[in-house]
Amino acid sequence: MIPASFNYHRASSVNEALDLLKQYGDDARLLAGGHSLLPAMKLRMNAPANLIDIGRIAELNSIRVENGTLHIGAGATHSAIAASPDVQGHAPVLADTAGMIGDVQVRNKGTIGGSLAHADPAADYPAVLLILNASINVIGPNGTRSIAAGDFFQDLYVTALEENEIITGVEIPAMPQGAGAVYLKFAQPASRFALVGCAALVKKDGGTCSEVRVAFTGVGNMPFRDSGVEGALTGQSADASAIEAAAAQAAGGIDVLSDHFAGEDYRTHLARVYARRALSQAAGLA
């Protein structure tokens, strides 16, 4: 399959990429690792007249911890994130998740910025960024801004990115002291996308869950924090029956996705099962 013709522009800096976006605007797409965009272009679901290659911009690749905050450049590949000692130390759940995306070859090319901008409802990162209270940094014609992960994802493939904005990176605050966090997914066997993915963070004081964060991917039109599950477990003891009862609330009030891989009932069932497993593993790590 061959994409439709386009003009190719290579940006060597973020500023140059912004200039190119200004010039080609509506008719341009950004190319980073290309692992969401190129498949879509090959299927002719996307046929931009211009591609702006930001894959060589070194300033977008850095991963570092500064003042207790983890900064990951938008151009960092999934394999770089999985292998980064900074990510493993600061937010091990994020390193583990990066290592579960797609397969080796996909992880060697795909980038976190590209995945976030694409906003596939079954992407793995979003659920984890939601429980880590991450924010997404962008730059555009009007300067820079930071968007909370909870505000970033707006609908199926729709984000808070404005016209001509570029994601520059992700910031992740320190996890609550002593908290445990995991991400588990039921992967579609061919694509490795999550039919259901659940990220859970649990902090315990004594035997009681003092803080609980749960987020899902693959379940609804966009990733979401599940306040029903969180509320049901917060203040309860971290035992199997309390976790089971909380997990049974999963996806309450959500318009659950249904496709030829998994219908609404089955996805809801998986959401409960994965919430239970993720919560009990997170509580075990706390």
Binding site: Y8, G34, L38, P39, S79, Q105, N108, K109, A190
Partner: peptide, 25 residues
């Protein structure tokens, strides 16, 4: 469609699927 891996090559030492990369990249 970047699933099967038959087109895997090494680019700068890393395995990638050459059906999902442009020659210009």
């Amino acid at each position: 469609t970047s699933s099967c891996g038959a087109c895997t090559i090494l680019v700068d030492g890393k395995a990638v699927k050459s059906c999902t990369m442009l020659a210009v990249q």
